[in-house]
């Protein structure tokens, strides 16, 4: 009956989410215990923790997009970015903490893609939190063995004469792909160029938007 069906849906037509009436996991308990102890001993304060969460949430792929667009319009900055991407990002005013960052450049004959097979290393201090799929076992295990097949699933079918370089963030470095500047963008401003740079194009699972597909600013 239609009525029965609707009982399981919210007024907006989505299923109700179940309450999380389950016991805390070991690590959830550990996190709460550590946090409460640190606050109790005056090492930090709840407001400080909230500020740090705010700061992390405020970081977004737009920061990386600004860095990429600058490299597209300024050859000196691009050279600086490829020499030391952390130093170049700081010079643009981004507070990326102790991040060690390497930029890898896509060209006519090379396409780069980033992964962390051991865990989920990602340049969070510049790009914000990684997408969920980046942390999945499927992405992490498959992209090192069949990167071309994985990229095809992202809608990127690379010709055989383009070399794919996979970068596994196994230790202290984090990576950002410097995608190739799309054709037909000669007259765009730096801000308009930045709007073409997607998160996935900086991971290497995509390429920048074509200028006619640009989202309105």
């Amino acid at each position: 009956m239609p009525h029965d069906h609707h009982e399981h849906l919210s007024p907006s037509g989505h299923p109700y989410r179940k309450d999380d009436d389950v016991p805390l996991t070991y690590w959830q308990t550990m996190e709460i215990a550590m946090r409460e102890l640190l606050i109790e001993k005056g090492e930090t304060a709840a407001a400080e923790i909230a500020r740090q969460i705010d700061a992390m949430d405020a970081r977004s792929p737009a920061n990386g997009a600004a860095v990429v667009a600058r490299a597209w319009v300024d050859a000196d900055f691009k050279a600086r970015l490829l020499a030391d991407a952390a130093e170049a990002s700081r010079a643009m005013g981004f507070d990326i903490g102790p991040l060690h960052l390497i930029a890898v450049e896509n060209t006519r004959d090379t396409h780069n893609v980033i992964v962390c097979t051991l865990c989920s290393c990602y340049p969070r201090n510049l790009l914000g939190l990684p997408p969920d799929w980046y942390k999945s076992r499927a992405y992490r295990s498959r992209v090192v063995k069949t990167p071309r097949a994985v990229l095809r699933e992202f809608g990127l079918d690379l010709p055989a004469d383009v070399t794919v370089r996979v970068h596994d963030s196994t230790a202290d470095m984090r990576y950002i792909v410097l995608p190739a500047r799309p054709p037909g963008t000669e007259n765009l401003t730096e801000a308009e160029l930045a709007a073409l740079v997607t998160r996935d194009s900086m991971i290497g699972t995509g390429v920048p938007r074509a200028p006619d597909l640009r989202q309105p600013a």
């Binding site: 370089r165 596994d168 963030s169 470095m173």
Partner: peptide
């Protein structure tokens, strides 16, 4: 790395190793 199973033998993988 993958021998005959490699999708494209000349593609590369870079990793940080101590």
């Amino acid at each position: 790395i993958w021998g005959a199973e490699a999708e494209a033998p000349d593609d590369t993988l870079d990793a940080e190793i101590y």
